[in-house]
Write a protein that binds this DNA or RNA. Structure first.
Lengths: 328, 328
DNA sequence: TGCGTAAGATAAAACCTTTTAGCAAATATA
DNA sequence: TATATTTGCTAAAAGGTTTTATCTTACGCA
């Protein structure tokens, strides 16, 4: 294996100084009054020998690593997988790459990773946080590391956020079941988590059913139990309350709902879920969706973070993206 | 923002040399004959002030970055998302973190990223390669960078691979339709790609139908067209050939198959797909699955790569993992 | 001729580690 | 007692950049 070229190899071979090569490579030739002739000579040679600067050395010197940490709860959830996909691509277009971590069920590890990423001089973070991370994120902010939260803000963390219009989405979703599907008794299935997006969705549901004086029928699923228990709870919720419609707060809840409906042959058939899923149109009964605008969320997240990294803005941005209802 | 501590801050504050601190921090105190008393004093102080070594400087000096590049075709495919999840966790347990890239439809970008990751002194690569990447991967190997391929080997790249037992899986899947489901005319739906795993699956299908003298009925879908066209092709394939059973070479093909069946109300109802999907049990008709053992694949991939990075082994490993049939 | 300034380039410090080679004192050996 | 060895620690180089401060030469102008 031949040794990698360094900038001083280039300088020596060309009989110029390292400084000069560095200036030229970083587009400062004009500014530093390097003659066009020399600039061209260096550039040509660099191209010819295919020299690539050592990014580590560069980062060490500049303090910028050109990488962004992406922490999501669960990359195998299609919502996060899709958003990660978009974020990765957009970040790349800005010259950043993504160091990612899926922190499913392991907050301790998430905390360690935030520290680890910080130690690696990550330029910024994109996080869909779990609840215990406030203190770690606040530490980042204290150290002036840009952080953008998405999907769910944290009440005790004051930073940029990009979230969907959860209240309105859930409200419209419930109205859809009421008005288009003619549902009479609509339940809302959510998780025990107190994540803000879940609160918003509950609020939207409540607003809709309050309007027409329907009972509030809410089930909070605890995911610390096995699937069979979850399905039984869903069955009980649906049949005890004689539901004819259900709004699920997120796609995996809807999938569990469908499993329960199938397993116990439940009658409920007016379903809608937050978050789209490729198969919602294929199942029986079909599941309508309040679809989050993934592309737009990713765009805003990356835009804000890159602006922050470049120090282009100091105000805190809170972006809210509308959802789209997919009727089925 | 207070400046980060460096090792020389520690050394100065303690009145010892940087070298000593470094030795102690790297567990070489004994080997380098540092007294226990001093070692303890340094360790205690480091803990007290919560000093964390600068990883960039460390990497620059040692040439090891403790990071692994993970390149997959499409992170939003549940198969890859799940495997990425496992790989990330396992790598973390070995002290590595994952820099990931989803290279959907953009081979040029994939090539650039391999170069970029290489420039960042990534310690090793885990790649589910697309076909044009052979030359780039061979370049990595030429530079002695460890690479493990999974899901599909490349015929012209000689390196470690972890793949599923595709032939046997498809063979068993086809037999299942024939014997358990009593299918009479089974089609095989695959992609136009010549990726090796697809070839293997085709081979398994052929072996099964050849055995009993059934016609070979194979459709290769080209994904350079819009979804409606894909669905029509599937419809034509299924109805023209009067299929009563279909083996799909991968999960997204199965989902398109289901869409076509639904959209055009096709009669075929004996379905099986390579790769599991949460909703395959919820759709009508249900889809059986030849499920790849994701956890085991991830384990092998990480084990082999870490061994390579540590120079623990020089032989090339080719691991084949059996699949599990999920009957529905 | 003498002086100021612009042009064109560079030496050396800085970023923060790890590691080689070596030093001084204490102890062991003869 | 004189020498060899061990103990305990450290100076300095190396890794590859960026950037500040400076240096030399040429030129314009009085």
């Amino acid at each position: 294996m031949k040794k990698r070229l360094s900038i001083s190899d280039i300088a020596n071979n060309l009989g110029v100084s390292v400084t000069t090569v560095s200036f030229i490579l970083n587009g400062k030739a004009k500014e530093k009054r390097i003659s066009d002739a020399l600039a061209k000579r260096v550039l040509d040679y660099v191209k010819k020998v295919d020299y690539k600067p050592n990014q580590l050395a560069k980062s060490l010197r500049t303090g910028k690593s050109k990488s962004i940490g992406l922490l999501v709860e669960d990359i195998s959830n299609p919502f996060f997988a899709n958003i990660a996909d978009h974020i990765e691509k957009l970040a790349y277009d800005h010259g950043y790459h993504i160091i990612y971590c899926s922190m499913k069920n392991d907050e301790q590890r998430a905390k360690e990773l935030i520290q680890l990423f910080y130690d690696r001089q990550i330029d910024g973070f994109i996080i869909a946080p779990t609840e215990g991370l406030s203190v770690d994120i606040n530490n980042l902010l204290k150290s002036s590391v840009p952080v953008v939260l998405f999907d769910r803000p944290l009440s005790d963390v004051e930073t940029h956020t990009v979230v969907s219009e959860n209240v309105e989405g859930a409200y419209q979703g419930t109205l859809f079941l009421l008005e288009q599907k003619n549902a009479k008794r609509i339940g809302f299935v959510t998780t025990v988590s107190t994540q803000s997006q879940m609160k918003g969705r509950l609020e939207g549901y409540m607003k809709a059913v309050d309007n027409i004086g329907m009972d509030l029928l809410v089930k909070k699923i605890n995911y610390d139990q096995n699937e069979d228990d979850v399905l039984e709870q869903l069955r009980d919720f649906i049949s005890d309350n004689k539901l004819d419609g259900v709004l699920f707060a997120t796609n995996y809840l809807a999938i569990n709902g469908l499993k329960a409906i199938k397993k116990f042959d439940l009658a409920v058939d007016k379903l809608i879920s937050f978050d789209e899923n490729t198969t919602f149109g294929l199942v029986d009964p079909p599941v309508s969706a309040i679809s989050q605008n993934i592309q737009e969320i990713a765009q805003e997240v990356v835009r804000i973070l890159v602006n922050q990294i470049n120090g282009k803005s100091d105000k805190i941005e809170k972006v809210v993206i509308p959802c789209t209802l997919i009727a089925r």
